[in-house]
Every structure is written in structure tokens, then in C-alpha cells.
């Protein structure tokens, strides 16, 4: 029996109840969210259950939403069940002032560098990660460049007027 999105949603709600929420299927991919302290439990459940079998981590990254107070940082996991060929997207939100999220690197070796990259650019503190240090940027950097509060252009430059590019 092929694994359906309804089945995944049903299994998750049976196990986690109201903790898993916001089930959607944008562009055909089942997406949902959970509280950030539940992330490992959800990942482990998806990994262990024989009928779910999400044992391949495709991608891990973060998104910064400055307009969502208390949920400024979203850590996004893309998981893949290679046997039934189903992909899902799982998101946890965190406050930007206490960006602690449990590490998935014990479950997926692939998450090791992806979490380092996410830490490097967004400052998400992956609790329990063995080697959480910057990976692409220099170690001396004291900010997290992909957060929206850091503008792309140098602020001292006056020759580049945003208004002229319709980006005011």
C-alpha cells in the first residue's frame, strides 16, 4: 500500500495530538509544524515507525520571519521516505531571543554540517551538537548574516537608493 499524506497526518495526530498542527500541502508536499521541544520526538517517530520510514534527510535550513513575534526563526526539515517515495516538510518555530533547538545530528549524520550552516547564518543554537561552530563564514564574525535585520547593502553607502529599485 502506498503511503498517503492522509495516513501520515493521521499517524502523527494519533501520536502527538494537538502538538502537531498546520497541516498543509503547498505544491503537493505535506507540511506541518510542531513545538520546538518536540522536534526530536517527531523526527524519531517518523524515522522509527515501519510504515512511515522517513529515514533520509534531504535538507535542513532556517527562515527568519521578523514579523512573527515569538516565532521569528523557523527551522525547516525536508524528509524523504525513499521506499515509498514521499517527501514531507516539517517546521519548528523558535523565539529569536532563545534560539535553542535540539540537534538532529545524532539521528542523521547529514544534519551535522547542515546544522552548522544554519547556526552560522541564523544563530540557531542546536542543543547537543558536538561541534557547533561556523562553517562558511569566518570564526571571528559576531553576527548572523541571513537574519533579516542585516541588510545586504552596506548601510554607509548613499549611492544605492532602494527607492529607485522599487524596494523601499
Amino acid at each position: 500500500m502506498a503511503l498517503t499524506q492522509e495516513h501520515i497526518q493521521q499517524r502523527l495526530t494519533e501520536k502527538f495530538g494537538d502538538l502537531v498542527s498546520n497541516f498543509e500541502t503547498p505544491y503537493g508536499m505535506l507540511s506541518f509544524e510542531a513545538p520546538k521541544d518536540q522536534n526530536l520526538k517527531v523526527l524519531q517517530f517518523l524515522y522509527d515507525e515501519a510504515d512511515l520510514n522517513f529515514q533520509f534527510m534531504t535538507d535542513l535550513t532556517a527562515v527568519n520571519y521578523p514579523d512573527k513575534p515569538g516565532r521569528e526563526l523557523a527551522v525547516v526539515y525536508h524528509l524523504h521516505n525513499l521506499r515509498d517515495n514521499v517527501r514531507i516538510r516539517f517546521t519548528v518555530y523558535s523565539d529569536i531571543n532563545s534560539p535553542d533547538v535540539f540537534t538532529a545530528s545524532k539521528l542523521f549524520s547529514a544534519a551535522n554540517w547542515m546544522e552548522r550552516e544554519t547556526y552560522d547564518f541564523f544563530g540557531v543554537n542546536f542543543v547537543g551538537h558536538e561541534n557547533l561552530k561556523r562553517i562558511l563564514n569566518v570564526d571571528e564574525m559576531d553576527y548572523f548574516p541571513l537574519r533579516k535585520e542585516y541588510p545586504l547593502e552596506e548601510r554607509t553607502r548613499i549611492d544605492k537608493d532602494d527607492q529607485m529599485f522599487g524596494r523601499g
Partner: peptide, 17 residues
């Protein structure tokens, strides 16, 4: 919207989120 698309690139799954 949020879209993830991937192709088989030379080295494997090249994804765009």
C-alpha cells in the same frame, strides 16, 4: 508559497527551497 524542487545534478540531488 513555499516550494521545494530538486533535479538530478551531476553530483546528486540539487534542491531549491
Amino acid at each position: 508559497g513555499e516550494v521545494y524542487h530538486s533535479i538530478e545534478a551531476g553530483n546528486g540531488e540539487l534542491g531549491f527551497y
